[in-house]
């Protein structure tokens, strides 16, 4: 469903941009519909850059990202608008990802209205459904993000992403700002949603235990390049040798 081909992203850094930083340097992988693909690496390995490229928030220096065979960086007009909906991203810090001046109801209604998915009085109904889908009651409709816990905010972020009917969610360290027990709740929810809607996940994390538990296929990023790729079980047995960990 998603194919990443030879993706590169270079940044200029230092005085007058004289230093070239190869944040992502020729990365290729593919994600099947309804599956979870784990991308692991140390901080600074370029994981988040890959996530942002796939979500279309950054333009690559070179390479392609194909969604259902269509290059997301070559699409125009209606097609671009459609692809935008189909790939959504969820960030690490849920409270930061929500506009603190908007109520939860407004936050969830906004994408529906912008993409003209629902109209008029059906909006409120749909927002209620979305809240229910992530296990929040209708009383959250009029709350502000800062009145809620981190776990609840992350549920709202997930609901907002789901409102557009995506096929792929990029999860960029979705729970590293949350407590362990809340992390488990969020992943339980993500699993349920995946089963129900055949969503694919690109899970970006530095937590090997988490990725090995959740992902089917895993790739290891090191200094912008993939150094290892395959089914979770075999990659992690290898990693222990490479990093001498545990």
């Amino acid at each position: 469903m998603l194919q990443v081909e030879n993706l590169r992203k270079y940044f200029r850094d230092g005085w007058w941009g004289r230093r070239l930083v190869k944040a992502v340097d020729g990365v290729s992988f593919a994600i099947e519909a309804g599956s979870t693909f784990g991308l692991v690496g140390e901080s600074g390995a370029g994981k988040s850059t890959v996530g942002r490229l796939v979500a279309g928030l950054l333009r690559p220096t070179d390479g392609r990202v194909l969604f259902e065979g269509r290059d997301i960086f070559k699409a125009n007009g209606r097609e671009a608008f459609y692809l935008r909906r189909k790939i959504q991203i969820i960030f690490q810090n849920p409270e930061g990802a929500l506009n603190p001046r908007m109520r939860i109801g407004e936050i969830l209604a906004e994408p529906l209205l912008v993409h003209r998915l629902v109209r008029g009085r059906h909006v409120r109904e749909r927002v209620g459904e979305l809240l229910a889908m992530v296990g929040l009651g209708p009383e959250f409709y009029s709350r502000y993000p800062w009145e809620m816990s981190g776990g609840q905010n992350q549920r709202v972020v997930i609901a907002r992403a789901l409102s557009l009917g995506p096929s792929l969610l990029v999860l960029d360290e979705p729970t590293s700002a949350l407590d362990v027990s809340v992390q488990a709740q969020v992943f339980q929810l993500l699993k349920q949603i995946q089963n129900k809607m055949r969503l694919a996940y690109l899970l970006i994390s530095h937590d090997l235990e988490l990725v090995s538990r959740v992902a089917g296929e895993v790739a290891v990023l090191h200094q912008g390049r993939l150094v290892e790729q395959g089914p979770a079980a075999s990659v992690f047995s290898h990693l222990c040798v490479v990093y001498g960990h545990k």
Binding site: S149, G151, V180, S181, V182, Q183, A184, Q185, F187, Q188, D207, E209, L210, S212, R213, V214
Partner: peptide, 18 residues
Amino acid sequence: RGLFASHPARGLKPIPGM
């Protein structure tokens, strides 16, 4: 017990509620 079980290495099983 719930806290331990919710750890990724030990099952990622959540404790219900808040």
